[in-house]
């Protein structure tokens, strides 16, 4: 089996598996975030659970970080290998005649997502690590605020219009990435989805609705605080 993952096809499958994991994570992340639109209390409670649960913090979180790092490192490795497979470029190349823009620019949409992930970590993850692991405060409370702090922290972040614009742009790139990636991942693991209309439709729906949902949440909190 170790030989398999060293082969080009093995790497392609590994890339797809990490992508499946990320797409599942994204769905779960969305499900929690959308709660913030409907109920401050529920959002706070779920956030507190996720932020303090042993399994989530010490098992799922490391797996997630590994998944993200693996996906983009493998993405870069394959991109370099693929660039080397054609050292002299065509003088004239009509890529649009036979493939979508999304499929030809996965590395750029991916880079935009990576830039967003860095911003997102600075915004939410680092402060969280600081509070919990450095200051040792696992209460989920803030001085002077009644109840859990999570909802207020979220609202505060989306006051700044520059951040909101950055989030919206990032989610557009995520959508473009997934528009090719969703069906591609199934094809990579040996499915014949490129032909199967239904999976393609599910892919389209996923790649538009989930990013759109995240955009909605960001805008909602920008205009309601």
């Amino acid at each position: 089996m170790s030989g398999f993952f060293k082969s080009s096809i093995g790497r392609k499958v590994a890339m797809a598996l990490s992508a499946f994991f990320l797409m599942f994570f994204l769905l779960q992340h969305f499900a929690i975030n959308i709660l913030s639109v409907f109920s401050e209390t529920t959002f706070n409670e779920v956030s507190h659970f996720m932020g303090t649960n042993f399994l989530v913090q010490f098992v799922l979180q490391p797996v997630l970080i590994f998944g993200v790092v693996f996906h983009f490192v493998m993405g870069f490795v394959l991109e370099i290998k693929n660039k080397n497979a054609r050292q002299i470029a065509y003088v004239k190349n009509n890529g649009a005649a036979n493939s979508t823009w999304m499929s030809r620019n996965m590395i750029y949409s991916g880079l935009a997502i990576l830039a967003f992930i860095v911003l997102h970590f600075i915004d939410f993850w680092f402060p969280e690590i600081n509070t919990k692991y450095i200051q040792g405060d696992w209460t989920g409370m803030h001085d002077g605020i009644e109840g859990y702090r999570y909802f207020h922290e979220l609202q505060e972040k989306f006051v700044n219009p520059i951040r909101v614009v950055a989030y919206v742009v990032a989610f557009i790139f995520l959508s473009l990435h997934l528009m090719h990636g969703f069906a591609s991942a199934f094809q990579s693991v040996g499915g014949s989805t490129i032909r199967k209309k239904r999976l393609q439709s599910i892919g389209k729906a996923y790649s538009i609705l989930i990013p759109l949902g995240f955009i909605f949440i960001a805008l909602y909190h920008h205009f309601n605080h």
Partner: peptide, 8 residues
């Protein structure tokens, strides 16, 4: 190179 399913 490695296939990325562009379909070209």
């Amino acid at each position: 190179g490695n296939c990325t399913n562009t379909g070209a």
